[in-house]
Design a binder for these strands. Structure first.
Length: 429
RNA sequence: UCCCCGGUAGCUCAAUUGGUAGAGCGCGCGGCUGUUAACCGCAAGGUUCGAGGUUCGAGUCCUCGCCGGGGAGCCA
């Protein structure tokens, strides 16, 4: 009977078949320890020499790492086995003898690992990280689906920029040009006017020449948009959403987080409400702690870290100056210089994981902003229609998937949180 | 786009003031019946990223180029 490694506890005493790849092999004369991984875990298979049939033992003696094989044997609990269970191999069938595998269990440099990303994926920590990514994605969908949000995906090929053209990837579109989407938000707003509560979730693209541990040129973003929501509604949704993702992952990925050696104490504290501070308060705090920062500008990575270090939970910074924010954000009626927006900054140096706002719902103000920002009014006519035909207060946010996964996993660089990262100087494999 | 660091064996790294290019891991061979990144022994393995320059002599110094890494700005 075929069994996955993660289910072996249910098969103690039974003969089972494990199908996988040789992760590592140790031998001691007349006994071999084959560590076989199958994607769900690693199990140690014990192989002893059989006087009647030496071929089985000899075949495995020189089996290279990552050879594919099928092992049948009795499953036993044994304290000496990594993982607590092992197979006494009765039959080993070799599917393919691998060539010399380039990634050893010893240390490698990041350049080499990135060049072999297609194989690096098989390593324990990469497997754990990708399993957590899948869990986070499932949690995201479950959260919105269970709250009556309708999935309404935005297009990836778009006719023009949402926020300027400098960071867009241009592609040919028959005899014309198109751009890869850098945000699905404007389309999500249209969908929210049709369906009330919606979200879109897909890859987005930014041609920014960024070279930091927080940037990819292709990353996934989930963007909920809610009709009749104000900034407070958006902030409440954001903190409940993040808390749900974290608690779901803590519940379902204990083994993976252990493999990653993640200290989960701080993650367990992530529950609503999150601290809320205004941009003005943040500026005051930063100035008092010696940062050289003027009112009016956006925060850089050092400022974000300084703010998040003061709290155990993610912190919500709201009401930034309009000047450093996007054209579609609504002006604060209490202070015309401010935007009704919020950034959620994750703890532990990951930086901004959410950017959201209440949207400008007045046609004339939006037209003025488009002109001020030198955007093409013509290409945004469809968007302005949303303010001409039943405009309502509404808002939403975008959450960066890879930054969120990196934070939960405690991963230094977000390139490890997506199977095949696309970066400034890296598009292979 | 700017700033900083690096490129030596398949991989990770050494190499003193410029003076014979070395180790660990992996691969190969041999040993070991409970290993935990097993261990022990033996062997193989090099156009020192490329081009030019300085020098009796360059892995080492200089110039240019290529490639990679880290960060800034911008952003999720």
């Amino acid at each position: 009977m075929h069994a996955y490694v993660e289910e072996l506890a249910k098969h103690v005493g039974q003969e089972v078949t494990v199908k996988g790849w040789l992760y590592n092999r140790r031998s001691s004369g007349k006994i071999q320890f084959l560590q076989v991984r199958d994607g769900t875990g690693i199990v140690q298979c014990i192989l002893t020499e059989d006087a009647a049939d030496k071929s089985r033992f000899e075949a495995c003696e020189h089996l290279p790492q990552e050879s594919s094989l099928v092992v049948t044997g009795v499953c036993r609990a044994d304290k000496r086995a990594p993982g607590g269970f092992e197979l006494t191999a009765r039959e080993v069938s070799i599917v393919q003898v691998a060539q010399n595998y380039p990634i050893s269990l010893q240390s490698h440099g990041i350049g080499f690992l990135m060049e072999h990303r297609h194989l690096w994926l098989r390593s324990r920590k990469q497997v754990a990280t990708l399993r957590i990514r899948a869990t986070v994605i499932k949690a995201i969908r479950d959260f919105f689906d269970s709250r009556g949000f309708i999935l309404a995906d935005s297009p990836i090929l778009t006719p023009a920029a949402c926020e300027g053209t400098s960071t867009l990837f241009e592609v040919g579109y028959f005899d014309d040009k198109a751009y890869l989407s850098q945000s699905g938000q404007l389309y999500a707003e249209a969908a929210a006017m049709a369906l009330g509560k919606v979200y879109c979730f897909g890859p987005t693209f930014r041609a920014e020449r960024s070279k930091t541990r927080r940037h990819l040129t292709e990353f996934w973003m989930v963007e909920p948009e809610v009709a009749f929501a104000d900034l407070d509604d958006v902030m409440r949704l954001a903190e409940e959403f993040i808390s749900f993702i974290v608690s779901t992952t803590l519940g379902r990925c204990k083994e993976e987080l252990k493999v990653l050696e993640r200290d989960t104490v701080r993650l367990e504290k992530v529950t609503p409400p999150f601290p809320r501070i205004s941009y003005d308060e943040a500026i005051k705090m930063l100035t008092e702690s010696g940062h050289d920062i003027k009112w009016g500008g956006d925060f850089g990575a050092p400022e974000e870290t300084a703010i998040s270090d003061r709290y155990e939970k993610p912190v919500m910074v709201h009401r930034y100056p309009m000047a450093c924010k996007a054209f579609y954000m609504k002006t604060d009626p209490q202070d015309e210089r401010l935007a009704l927006c919020v950034d959620v900054i994750a703890p532990e140096g990951v930086g901004e994981i959410i950017g959201g706002s209440q949207r400008e719902d007045r046609l004339e103000v939006l037209e003025k902003r488009i002109a001020e920002n030198n955007l093409s009014k013509e290409s945004l006519e469809w968007y302005l229609d949303l303010r001409r035909f039943g405009s309502v207060p509404h808002g939403g946010f975008g959450l960066g998937l890879e930054r969120t996964v990196a934070w939960i996993c405690g991963t230094e660089h977000i390139r490890e949180t997506i199977p095949f990262p696309r970066m400034l100087y890296r598009i292979y494999p």
